[in-house]
Write a protein that binds this DNA or RNA. Structure first.
Length: 209
DNA sequence: GACTTAATTGAGGAGTTGAA
DNA sequence: TTCAACTCCTCAATTAAGTC
């Protein structure tokens, strides 16, 4: 049961995961054995067959590990599976979190202490949603997955990271590093150019698989 | 040491996909 | 359409660990 809960907790953390990825992460011997072990958990899993077998927790699986993280079948599965490749690339970080929101709210600065009663001052708020995030060796690693996203959206997001870089540093009290994982060498070059002002690394999935 | 149970492995075959 | 490569499944055999 311990192993069952451990595997279900892992699947819950990743959202969706392919059997091949579970084989890489769990190290249960041969690929065939991983298939068999995952098959034993079929009561707790929804299965999607695409290029490969993909699993995610069903209601019973969520109940067993007391998770509220309901995953619904969507076009985002490919994106989540690519994020898993990054998770495996970084050797399965313990504090890996998906869709992590970093929000900074700045109180307005008053040049003099007169405040009109009932008049609300505009509060400056900035936020960025990283595809994944984890900490290691004194750094906070910010992970972005570029799958089918438009390049203009990527550039906007990089600008957003630039504007929040110091805030991220303050919030996590760690030096940030941005990792962009992309699908082609051409996009990799463009992203690397755009990230020049940041401590960042751009990798293609063909490099890490 | 004998027995039981769970985990793992090996063999072989079915289904799917993509290239020729 | 054919064929190779890959993924997945089932079944039987083997190995490891625990209990008496």
């Amino acid at each position: 049961m311990n192993r069952t809960e451990m595997i279900l907790t892992l699947i819950d953390r990743l959202g969706v995961v392919s059997v091949r990825q579970l084989h890489d992460i769990l190290k249960l011997g041969t690929y065939r054995n991983t298939c068999r072990v995952i098959n034993q958990l079929s009561t707790y899993l929804n299965v999607v067959r695409s290029k490969e077998k993909i699993v995610y927790l069903n209601k019973e699986g969520r109940e067993l590990i007391a998770s509220n993280n309901e995953v619904k079948k969507s076009i985002l599965f490919d994106h989540m599976l690519l994020a898993n490749e990054a998770y495996i690339y970084f050797n399965c970080p313990i504090d890996w979190k998906r869709e992590q929101i970093t929000e900074v709210i700045k109180e307005p600065e008053y040049s003099f202490r007169i405040q009109v009663k009932g008049l609300k001052q505009a509060v400056e708020s900035k936020k960025i949603i990283s595809d994944s995030i984890f900490t290691r060796n004194g750094y906070v690693h910010l992970i972005e997955i570029d799958n089918t996203r438009q390049m203009s959206d990527n550039l906007k997001k990089i600008k957003n990271y630039e504007s929040m870089w110091d805030d991220i540093k303050q919030k996590y009290k760690l030096q940030p590093i941005l990792y962009f994982f992309t699908v082609s060498e051409n996009r990799k070059r463009k992203l690397a150019r755009a990230c020049k002002s940041l401590r960042a690394e751009v990798l293609s999935f063909s490099e890490i698989k």
